[in-house]
């Protein structure tokens, strides 16, 4: 999995590509934790390049969401589609998280 961070005016965009599973989820977790402890509490996660997410990956998303909630931050997911979207739908994650069709939309909703 690749992890890229891009600072926008009103949020930090995190781009994840590849596979998010038991092996790579801890990397996502620690990277986002670093952002949060560094003061970035408004985060948009771009799922555009993500091919696969396992239950361990979902747990990683939950851990960071919980941490962000404790800090009073905001979290939006953009470009959740394909098989990842199916997993989100089955597991009910789609109804728990704020989902947008694009990063621009997420940024607009955060503004």
């Amino acid at each position: 999995m690749e992890f890229q961070v891009k600072k926008e005016a009103n949020a930090t965009v995190v781009m994840i590509t590849g596979r998010m599973d038991a092996v790579t989820a801890p990397q996502y977790e620690s990277s986002v934790n670093e952002l949060i402890t560094g003061g970035d509490t408004i985060i948009v996660v771009d799922f555009d390049g993500l091919d696969y997410i396992s239950s361990a990956g979902l747990r990683g998303l939950l851990v960071t969401a919980k941490l962000l909630k404790a800090k009073g931050g905001q979290l939006r997911f953009a470009n959740v589609k394909g098989t990842v979207r199916e997993v989100f739908d089955i597991s009910g994650f789609g109804s728990i998280f704020q989902m947008d069709d694009s990063v621009a939309e997420s940024l607009a909703k955060l503004a």
Binding site: L58, R59, D89, S91, G92, F93, G94, S95, I96
Partner: peptide, 9 residues
């Protein structure tokens, strides 16, 4: 209906 997973919230 897909309820949310059990345990986290």
């Amino acid at each position: 209906k897909s309820g949310f997973v059990m345990g986290p919230v």
